[in-house]
Write a protein that binds this DNA or RNA. Sequence first.
DNA 1: AATGAATGAGCGTTCATTCAT
DNA 2: TATGAATGAACGCTCATTCAT
Lengths: 209, 209, 209, 209
Amino acid sequence: MRELQTRPGTGASNKGEQRVLQILNGAKEILIRDGYRGLTLRAVAAECGISVGNITYYYRHKADLLRDLAHRVFDGYAAEFTRIRDASTGNTRDEFEAVLRFIFQDLGTRETTVFFPELWALANHEDYAGEAVNEIYAAERQLFEELIARLNPRLPPLRVKLLALHISASIEGHTMFVGAGKTWARQRFELGEILVQNALNLVMQDAPD
Amino acid sequence: MRELQTRPGTGASNKGEQRVLQILNGAKEILIRDGYRGLTLRAVAAECGISVGNITYYYRHKADLLRDLAHRVFDGYAAEFTRIRDASTGNTRDEFEAVLRFIFQDLGTRETTVFFPELWALANHEDYAGEAVNEIYAAERQLFEELIARLNPRLPPLRVKLLALHISASIEGHTMFVGAGKTWARQRFELGEILVQNALNLVMQDAPD
Amino acid sequence: MRELQTRPGTGASNKGEQRVLQILNGAKEILIRDGYRGLTLRAVAAECGISVGNITYYYRHKADLLRDLAHRVFDGYAAEFTRIRDASTGNTRDEFEAVLRFIFQDLGTRETTVFFPELWALANHEDYAGEAVNEIYAAERQLFEELIARLNPRLPPLRVKLLALHISASIEGHTMFVGAGKTWARQRFELGEILVQNALNLVMQDAPD
Amino acid sequence: MRELQTRPGTGASNKGEQRVLQILNGAKEILIRDGYRGLTLRAVAAECGISVGNITYYYRHKADLLRDLAHRVFDGYAAEFTRIRDASTGNTRDEFEAVLRFIFQDLGTRETTVFFPELWALANHEDYAGEAVNEIYAAERQLFEELIARLNPRLPPLRVKLLALHISASIEGHTMFVGAGKTWARQRFELGEILVQNALNLVMQDAPD
DNA sequence: AATGAATGAGCGTTCATTCAT
DNA sequence: TATGAATGAACGCTCATTCAT
């Protein structure tokens, strides 16, 4: 588990640990409900029913809290990927499709619809956000790469990497269109199937030069 | 040409028109350099070497300025699409590839890399941003749809729409990966070719149920 | 006629004179409609369909405009009082009642309801407003004093003055209660009759010590 | 006691309570000295020797502060009325005269002279001010009504209400004439006696139709 | 561990006023 | 005479952060 960005010496006790989790959950709730602009310390404090001072007791700077928040989201996906990997039935193709479908349909949750664009935008100006983005998608691609290499063993490693990136990017790009409340949200399933079929074709038909 | 959101009676004179353009350019510059959080009226004023009051003289509300800014970007792409359509050589496939390559490689400009994620994030909280996003991509998809329908006339209209959306989304999703300064920027060309080939396959092989 | 507070050299021409009147009328309209807080140069300009610069061409300072505006209201009442005096039928009691009723019922016009409290408040901080208040009520009291002295010739002059002031103040005090839109507006007539009867009693029964 | 309009959670401690009182006193001081136009958060902060942020810490909106300020004035008068009612000697006429004299002579305090006209003017534009005005005078009239009904039990209830209103309005109307620093301030006592006698006559002689 | 008070910088916005044309 | 551009000061308000308790 990653080291928290809390003030040294805080969050050690059981109570403190609980409090930190409560703060992170509250912050996530607000980010999803009100967007990044609504994510103020006052709002988080109100959400958690604690004082602003108590938040700054754990997180000296707001950016520290955001860092931990980003990592928590990352950890959530990493755990999901691990779960998928562990639940492997041996049928790589089924597994690949399941992963793609999971990630694609997850775009429809309000959490993902709101959180990721904020993170992408932030990544252009804040280092910690850029790092978080890198980590999250690196983990996603690693899973893709394993599956792609198994599906088409003749692909050279770099090609595998590029295909994984392409598929990952293609999925993410749908966020603004099929996300929660977006214009094409009702076609999310259909578009997901197009993506899955297309990704399969790409991986299977692709041949080394 | 769209109506500007400036106060009625302002920006009529030559000087005023110039000033409005200067303000919009300054705002764009700052948005790209410092992100949405840095885009304050004071920053724009400083960038333009004018007073804050002078900005609010033209734009009563910051949102009015942002609206115009979004539409300017939109107009830029719309003009480009028109240019491409007008320059049609008759070879639909070449044209389709050219369009895809243009849009994909454009992701590598710092302007696009930074501006669009900001717009996507904003679209979740601000109506005008959501409308701007919708308009921009609707124009892009319209061009795609024309080309796809010509490439594979047997596709039903809805299928054409979905394929256009899928391709458009897939391109945009690469922004965070192959954009200016991003980790995979050096593979932008190669990834672009993967996308182009894949899109062509998708359009040509796709068959009505 | 009072001298206007316009810039020296302006408002001389026929056109200029008309413009000044237009500005004053516009300002009054806005003051009545939107209150003192809404009375900005921009609002007046919009109301008149001219530019802000054109207003400041005539009135260098906003206070100059307000001064003229206050005096115009004063002139309006002064003219009304003159008219009443000139229309005298010889029956002093009828005339007295008519004057009281006119002034009291005038409290119900939105103009009076809004304008006078603003003037009273302003009078505590701005000299010109204090002077305007003094002038307006001095003219009103002069009319009252004439009528009271005729109604009860045995009253000494100072007593006449005090009674006139008392009656004038009593009327004005009803503004906040029976003015346009106020809680007791529907009882305006009935309260006016109470005041008239009471004032008559006071004047007729009052005896020198 | 009325609930304060301060932010929830603030002003709970002794220090906070003191601070809120200090802010209200400072605001009152400025309103009296400089009028409503001078009553800015910055001015109040300077008066109290604290930061603007500290005021908005307690009062999120300026209107909240003004509301509390109006209610404090109201509470002051309400307490005075209660005191008078409790000190009742049994002689209703004496009591009635005492109340009228108290209110009338109070017009001579700078606080009353300045504060109330501001409130009347504000009442035309701001709801909270209108409500405050209504509450203050409703309390005053209630006291009047009790006394009037006792002085002349034959008066029907509505008539009592109208007479109370008339007397209240007549008193208030003297503010601009006999208030602190006003032209007729030196005749305040004499005019007060005229009002008292006149009010007594009105109440005693008035007969149901 | 937690609170509530307090700050200071900065925000978008309003507006009277100046001025070149 | 009239306009539109431009300014600068001030406004109410937000918010991350500090700190004494």
